[in-house]
Amino acid sequence: MRRQKRDMNTRAFDKGYQAGITGRSQELCPHSDDEHRQNWISGWREGRSDQWDGLTGVSGVHKIRAL
């Protein structure tokens, strides 16, 4: 089994970051578990912040982890 599948908190953060950087709504969080939802929302907030700072496309590649 791949490492990313085992650590759901990190995966939730990464998926939330991807959703935030692309401008999707926070309401689209797919998690019902409180811990995973909190990690997704934290990633989403960081992604939105990076989008507002202009770190999209090539300038933000260093922020995205390899999935």
Results as ranks from 00 to 15, higher is better:
T56H: 02
A12E: 10
R45W: 03
I41E: 13
F13T: 06
C29D: 10
W40Q: 05
S42V: 06
Q38M: 12
A66N: 13
D7A: 02
L67C: 09
R65Y: 06
Y17D: 08
Q18G: 11
S25K: 01
E27N: 13
D33R: 08
R6K: 14
Q51N: 08
W52A: 11
G60P: 03
G16F: 02
D33M: 11
S25C: 05
W52Y: 09
S49N: 12
R11N: 12
D7V: 07
V61S: 14
R37Q: 10
I64E: 14
A12K: 06
Q51V: 05
R2C: 08
R45D: 11
N39P: 01
R37Y: 00
G20Y: 00
D34E: 14
C29R: 01
Q4R: 12
G57D: 06
C29S: 05
G57Y: 00
D7P: 00
Q38P: 00
G47M: 02
G47L: 00
D34Q: 13
N9H: 04
Y17V: 07
L28C: 07
E46P: 00
H62V: 12
R24L: 15
T56V: 15
G23L: 04
G23T: 06
R3N: 09
R24Q: 15
Q51K: 14
Q4G: 04
Q18E: 15
V61C: 09
L28F: 06
W52N: 10
G16N: 02
K15W: 01
Q4M: 08
S25A: 03
C29V: 05
W40K: 04
H36C: 12
G43C: 04
R3M: 05
L67W: 11
R65W: 06
T22D: 13
L55F: 13
R24H: 12
E46V: 08
H62R: 03
R11G: 00
